[in-house]
Amino acid sequence: MAETILSISHLTKRFDDQTILEDLSLEVREGEVVVIVGSSGCGKSTLLRCINALEDIQGGEIRLRGELIRYGSKNLPEMRRKVGMVFQNYELFPHLTVLENILLAPVKAQKRSREEVREEALTLLDRVGLKEKAGSYPRQLSGGQKQRVAIVRALCMHPEILLFDEVTAALDPEMVREVLDVIVSLADQGKTMLIVTHEMSFARAVADRIILLEDRNILEESDPETFFTAPKTEQAKKFLQSFEFNRKNKAEA
């Protein structure tokens, strides 16, 4: 069995007196693609933000290859460099070109040679079909293009694990595909990924393991075939049915 990259144990997260996650434990092994699903507001995004220590946690611990990731700790920037994060709204830096967006952290934070990173960045941009946009500013790109740049930006850091936070939720439908295709190809390359998404067919195709988050904790955890064809819990069935219902509506329309 492959080595454990990310291990979360007994994680509890509260905002003021509202508990979002409680006593949650989860492990992700090298090369594994884990997809987290669940109804809106169940804490999926918060979980990802905790892993990157963008949120403080009130209990438990998070380790990356055995090393503790702790909010406010001295080596946090160093730990974060090993975790690639892609946000729902891309969060490219508007004052920098596509290439500068990608080069900034590897050059400034990782102190790698500009030339080397530049070459890598252009190769990756080429692979997602955006090589000719290297000198453009984010505002000149479509949503789907921006999100692909954001993925390249995260990849160039050579992270141990990639976190995707509903990366297609803000996109127009015709652009969803181009982004998801990139992620699927990353999965094929054996990247370790933790993905939060509402795209069920994508989840089914890309995931090694599906996790259903409800009620502050993991409710169901299984391989995609089992999850989609034979869910164990009533809530999982209900959750999946909400998509079925949507689909019927679409067919009628």
Binding site: N52, L54, P77, E78, M79, R80, R81, K82, V83, M85, F87, N89, E91, F93, P94, H95, L104, A105, K108, A109, Q110, R153, A154, M157
Partner: peptide, 28 residues
């Protein structure tokens, strides 16, 4: 805020976040 978080998530140190992300945008 999420611009700052995006920079932090890339592993930039607080000073670097101001120097490269926040201030250039603020100055404009």
């Amino acid at each position: 805020v999420i611009q700052r978080e995006s920079a932090e998530a890339l592993g930039l140190k607080p000073f670097q976040v101001y120097r490269w992300i926040i201030l250039p945008q603020a100055v404009r």
